[in-house]
C-alpha cells in the first residue's frame, strides 16, 4: 500500500525512511537474538526458536574463514527465498563501502543492511553514506570513535564486532567493554574537553555530545562475533548491550534447534542464573571454534572498518 497516495488533509505528511522509523526497528529488536542463516530451512528453525530477525547469507563466517577468497553480497535469489520463508525481519550483508550492493539489498526489500567487515571490503577509506537510504543499516565497531563515525554516516544500529566465525567470545567482550567504558568516561568529562575528545577519537562532535547526554549510544547496540552458548549471550547482556547476533555459533553446533532456543531464553533471562543453568543443559557440542589469540592479524576480520 502506498501511504503517500492515501494521505489527505488530516495526515498532512506521511514520512518513510526517517531516522525515527529506521532506528525504531532496531528498538523493536532489543532483548532479542539475530541469527545467521544460509537456507530457508535454517531461517524457519531460527524463527521457530524465537529469533527476532535472521541474517541471510551464503556462508556463515566460520565457512568464509575456511574458504578464503573474496566474500561478497549473497545471491539475491537466496535472500528472496528467505524473505518468503519467514514473517520476522530479514537482514543481509553488503561489503564495506559497496553502496551498490546496498542499493540491491534495499530493492530486494531486506529490512536491515549490515555493512559488514565479515565480507571483503570494497572501499579501504569510505563507508556507505547511509543517510541516502530508506532501509536502515547496522555497522560494526570496536570502540566508541568507530561507533560514532558510523552513526554520523547514518547507521541506525551498532553492533560491537567481536571476531566473527571463531566461537571465541573474548573479542566480543573486549569491544563491548571498550565502547561501554568509553561512554562511562565520557559522561564524567566536562564539556570543555568534549571537542578535543571528539577530535582524538575521530568522531562527529554532535554525536559525541548526544552520547554524553544520553549516557548511551544514540542507537541500539547489539553484541556480535564469537557468541556460541547461552552463557555467552547472557554475559554480553549483563555487560550492557541491547541484544545479540549469533553467527556461526548456532548452525555450526551439533544441534542447532535446541541451542538456538536456549540462546533466545538466555537473552531474555540474562539476569537469572537458575534459568541460565536450566537452558544450558544437554545442548550437545558447541561449535569447535578457534582461539582468537592464535589468529594472525591478517586473518582478523574486526580490523576492517575505518
Amino acid at each position: 500500500m502506498n501511504m503517500k497516495e492515501n494521505a489527505n488533509n488530516s495526515e498532512k505528511e506521511v514520512e518513510v525512511g526517517s531516522a525515527t522509523v529506521k532506528r525504531g526497528l532496531a528498538q523493536m529488536l532489543k532483548g532479542g537474538v539475530i541469527m545467521d542463516v544460509v537456507t530457508p530451512a535454517h531461517a524457519l528453525i531460527a524463527e521457530e526458536a524465537g529469533a527476532v530477525a535472521v541474517m541471510a547469507l551464503e556462508r556463515v563466517p566460520a565457512d568464509i574463514r575456511v574458504s578464503g577468497g573474496v566474500a561478497r553480497m549473497s545471491d539475491p535469489s537466496m535472500i528472496r527465498e528467505i524473505i518468503q520463508a519467514v514473517s520476522i525481519p530479514v537482514m543481509a550483508k553488503c561489503r564495506i563501502g559497496h553502496f551498490v550492493e546496498a542499493q540491491i539489498l534495499e530493492a530486494l526489500g531486506v529490512d536491515f543492511v549490515d555493512e559488514s567487515e565479515v565480507l571483503t571490503p570494497a572501499d579501504l577509506k569510505h563507508h556507505v553514506n547511509k543517510h541516502e537510504f530508506k532501509v536502515p543499516f547496522v555497522c560494526g565497531c570496536r570502540n566508541l570513535g568507530e561507533a560514532l563515525r558510523r552513526i554520523g554516516e547514518g547507521a541506525a544500529m551498532i553492533r560491537t564486532k567481536g571476531e566473527a566465525g571463531t566461537g571465541d567470545v573474548v573479542e566480543a567482550v573486549k569491544h563491548a567493554r571498550t565502547v561501554l567504558g568509553e561512554i562511562r568516561r565520557l559522561q564524567l568529562m566536562p564539556y570543555d574537553e568534549l571537542m578535543s575528545y571528539a577530535k582524538e577519537i575521530g568522531a562527529p562532535y554532535g554525536v559525541v555530545k548526544e552520547t554524553k547526554e544520553l549516557g548511551r549510544l544514540p542507537v541500539v547496540n547489539f553484541a556480535a562475533g564469537g557468541i556460541a552458548t547461552p552463557a555467552d549471550a547472557a554475559l554480553m547482556m549483563q555487560l550492557g548491550v541491547d541484544g545479540v547476533f549469533v553467527g556461526s555459533g548456532i548452525f555450526k553446533s551439533a544441534e542447532p534447534a535446541p541451542r538456538a532456543k536456549a540462546i533466545v531464553e538466555a537473552t531474555t533471562h540474562y539476569n537469572n542464573p537458575e534459568i541460565l543453568a536450566k537452558v544450558s543443559e544437554n545442548l550437545g557440542e558447541p561449535m569447535v571454534g578457534i582461539n582468537v589469540s592464535s589468529l594472525p592479524e591478517s586473518e582478523q576480520l574486526a580490523t576492517r572498518g575505518w
Binding site: 500500500m1 488530516s10 498532512k12 514520512e15 518513510v16
Partner: peptide, 17 residues
C-alpha cells in the same frame, strides 16, 4: 493482519487524529 503496510522500507510516521 501482520506486516500490513509492507516491509521495513515502507515503515512510516504520520500525524493521526
Amino acid at each position: 493482519r501482520r506486516n500490513a503496510f509492507g516491509r521495513q522500507v515502507d515503515s512510516f510516521q504520520v500525524n493521526l487524529n
